[in-house]
């Protein structure tokens, strides 16, 4: 891993932290935050490996006691809380977004970007977050889905669109992911 990759990883961890300063809307136990935008962008811009590491680094920042979650939250306490599943899902979500992005890199467009961000940034996050919420709160699956997933669908859909639009333009302006080029196209 090159120093440049480390700098990218730190950058997207910081970006996710800054997105936590966007005021969160509390809906029951799980807040609506802008931070999953950081998850989607990290995967879309950096790819699977570096995206995963960026969000893992973000969780390290949370764990060592920096108030980088919405409303100045942070510290080890959140990992015992009901939203722990969502937090732990983020590195994997970024990795899935990044994997789909890398896989479709040569024909990447808004549609692929949307697919990557919806599958990674929404499906994976819910798939991990909701069961943990249900487990910790002892909720039935139906109740857990209605408190832990349904209120966020609209917000997450908007975030996926924003992340996809941004990712497509960033790819055009400053592509970070490198696909091994075929020998024929090399100059």
């Amino acid at each position: 891993m090159k120093t440049r990759d480390l700098a990218y990883v730190a950058l997207f961890a910081a970006l996710t932290a800054v997105l936590g300063l966007v005021p969160a809307i509390n809906v029951g136990p799980v807040p609506i935050t802008a931070q999953t935008l950081g998850v989607m962008l990290a995967g879309s811009v950096l790819g699977a490996r570096r995206g995963f590491l960026a969000l893992a680094l973000f969780l390290v920042l949370v764990a060592v006691g920096l108030p980088v979650l919405p409303g100045g939250g942070g510290g080890l306490a959140v990992f015992a809380g009901p939203t722990a599943g969502y937090l732990f899902s983020w590195p994997f979500a970024a990795a899935v977004v990044g994997a789909i992005t890398e896989w479709t890199w040569n024909r990447y467009n808004l549609a692929w970007a949307l697919l990557a961000n919806v599958v990674g940034g929404i499906v994976v996050v819910y798939a991990v977050g909701v069961p943990v919420l249900a487990l910790v709160l002892d909720l039935s699956p139906g109740v857990a889905l209605s408190t832990g997933a349904a209120p966020f669908l609209v917000g997450d859909a908007i975030k996926a669109v924003v992340a996809s639009v941004v990712a497509v333009q960033v790819r055009r302006a400053y592509p970070v992911i490198e696909r091994p080029r075929r020998a024929a196209t090399a100059p």
Partner: peptide
């Protein structure tokens, strides 16, 4: 190093 870099990036980003 990563934690230090990330912390430095936060104000720069804003």
């Amino acid at each position: 190093l990563l934690v230090a870099l990330a912390l430095r990036f936060v104000p720069v980003l804003g």
